[in-house]
Design a protein around this nucleic acid. Structure first.
Length: 299
DNA sequence: TTCCAGGGGTAGA
DNA sequence: TCTACCCATGGA
């Protein structure tokens, strides 16, 4: 089987393990984490339909990428896979202004400058949008189950090992009659939201990749996200984070349970008060919240 | 059995 | 803008 070996160079500082374990996405299908290496694998479908398997790990300051494919990869395919992995790991992002605030604040915030801040994400906004919908009003185990079902039912299989599959495309979901999708996906009340999103994308009504355009003002983008059925304030804030906008926080049970006891000492604060905790971080609010939680977990 | 989980849509005020 | 109420699903 043809195997290509590719390399990527992140903007320093970079920490591979912290990046892939920055949140739970790395264990949601089709991602598979190997904690020991550490590395992760996932199956990807290329524009021509070919399905390949990636393995990604760190080699010193670089990121290495092994691609297994049935046929030899073209240069364009290699470049596309490099871009997808760079997107997932946010290798080209610059966190220097985030780190400046962290340094000024001293401990424990100064620990962030060792390469914390990159939030692992999916190669496409579509996958991130669906997975975000799968985190609403459900325990994490349910989210994992639902992602695995979508991949197993409608993901394109990797020919040498048909049990390994890619995340289903919007086309693959939209092609399934809704009743069948609802019955087999096990998404509960989320089924119509995911199916409608797939249909709006394949119908040309929505272009989710366009949401990555940094020229769109955050507030405008937030409104666009809320206009999608199944995306409310929590999901929109989570997606803004995944799109590289950190100026808005989502209020959910995780936020409430972390910030409440930590900053309000037994008092019952309002949602507005709780969300104001990270106001000083300006465009970096979400990362300040998230990695404060991460630092506490490491301690 | 009941509760509730990294909420969201809708109707009605 | 705010509040009830309902929404599937499965684990505790």
């Amino acid at each position: 089987m043809p195997t290509a070996s590719l390399r990527l160079t992140p903007v320093p500082p970079f920490d591979f393990y912290i990046t892939i374990s920055s949140h739970g996405w790395v264990v949601l299908a089709p991602n598979a984490l190997d904690k020991e290496e550490p590395s992760f694998r996932r199956v990807e479908q290329l524009p021509g339909g070919e399905v390949v398997c990636l393995e990604v790990w760190a080699d010193g300051p670089q990121v290495r990428l092994k691609v297994e494919s049935e046929g030899a990869l073209t240069g364009a395919h290699k470049n596309l896979l490099r871009r997808r992995v760079a997107h997932m790991l946010r290798l080209d992002d610059d966190y220097s202004s985030f780190y400046r605030i962290a340094r000024k604040r001293g401990k424990p915030w100064s620990r962030l400058v060792q390469g914390l801040g990159r939030m692992f994400r999916s190669p496409t906004v579509w996958e991130d949008a669906v997975k975000t919908m799968l985190t609403t009003n459900i325990a994490w185990g349910g989210t994992k189950r639902m992602a695995a079902t979508l991949v197993e039912e409608w993901g394109a299989p990797f020919p040498p090992d048909l049990s390994q599959k890619a995340f289903p495309s919007p086309q693959a979901i939209a092609a399934v009659p809704f009743k069948r999708f609802e019955a087999r996906a096990g998404l509960g009340y989320r089924a119509p939201y995911v199916h409608e999103l797939a249909r709006r994308i394949t119908g040309g009504e929505l272009d989710l990749q366009a949401w990555l355009d940094p020229a769109i003002p955050s507030e405008n983008l937030y409104r666009q996200l809320l206009a999608v059925k199944g995306i409310g304030p929590y999901a929109a804030a989570n997606l803004l984070m995944l799109l590289g906008r950190y100026d808005r926080l989502g209020f959910d049970t995780v936020y409430r349970d972390f910030v409440g006891p930590r900053y309000f000492n037994g008092r019952q604060p309002s949602e507005r008060e709780m969300l104001a905790v990270y106001d000083d971080w300006g465009e970096w609010k979400y990362l300040a919240y998230w990695f404060e939680m991460y630092l506490e977990d490491m301690a």
